[in-house]
Amino acid sequence: MKPRYSFGGDEHIFVEVDEEMSLEAFFKSLSITKAVRESQIEGVTEICPANASCQIKFDPDVIGPDDLLAKIQSLESAADEVEAVLSTRIIEVPVLYNDPWTHETLMRFRERHQDPNGTDLEYAARINNFDSVDAFIEAHSGAPWFVSMVGFVAGLPFMYQMVDRPRQIEVPKYLRPRTDTPKLTVGYGGCFACIYSVRGAGGYQMFGITPMPIFDPKQETSYLRDFMVFFKPGDIVKFKPIDRATYDKDVAEVEAGRYAPRVREFTFSLEEFQADIDGYNAKIGEALHGD
């Protein structure tokens, strides 16, 4: 894992931490961006962590590109020394898998899909060697996920599951992107889950829908009044399968301004996680529901 640097024109420095995805690469990206943010370098205007890379936007009239590059490189080598511990939060996201809205959409765009005769869930379960869709949903909702990037469109979280590589779910994107995706669709592409924050185009497989808004530019949703975007990189997400009745009840609660997502503070240690993945994930479950 040797970071690769490139200028993105005269206003961006792009750091590819690693070509392939891993929690280590993601943590390295987080620690580089954290170090850059804390250094408060004059001329830096945007600091964007991504899954296994990061990007710094700057004003070259204020700081020379080579000066900033040298500065970031020195911060990166210092970030190597830091123990990977993260003060973060665990968030429970309810999901109605196999819901009628994504089902209607996936049928409408079936000719753009690898398997025109099934659903996205059936396809994903089959190519990942699960016996049934239920077993697939159990794996998808069983272990937690790291929000490894927020972006594409406003507030959309990319999530990477906190399991070892043999258990990672992988699915291709649609053969051709759809022109429509319901808002709050729980999607999947490559090794990443996502939640579509707004309605629009998309290429990820569609598994379900959450009743919980995650982006509200009007800031009317009770828990988005302080800020319109819910997720940030480093958040831990646990999906909770719900039925239609619970989904309807949650939607009504959201509309009444009473919905409160289950959120708990948590200190994550990469080393402890790697020593015992399942044990550590059980601890995350306890932190979420222990009280």
Binding site: G8, G9, E11, H12, F14, E16, D18, E19, E20, M21, C48, A50, N51, A52, S53, C54, Q55, K57, M149, G151, F152, F158, G190, F192
Partner: peptide
């Protein structure tokens, strides 16, 4: 394809 990354303006 790459592992999803940031996109610079103008990229």
């Amino acid at each position: 394809n790459i592992v999803d990354s940031c996109y610079p303006y103008g990229s």
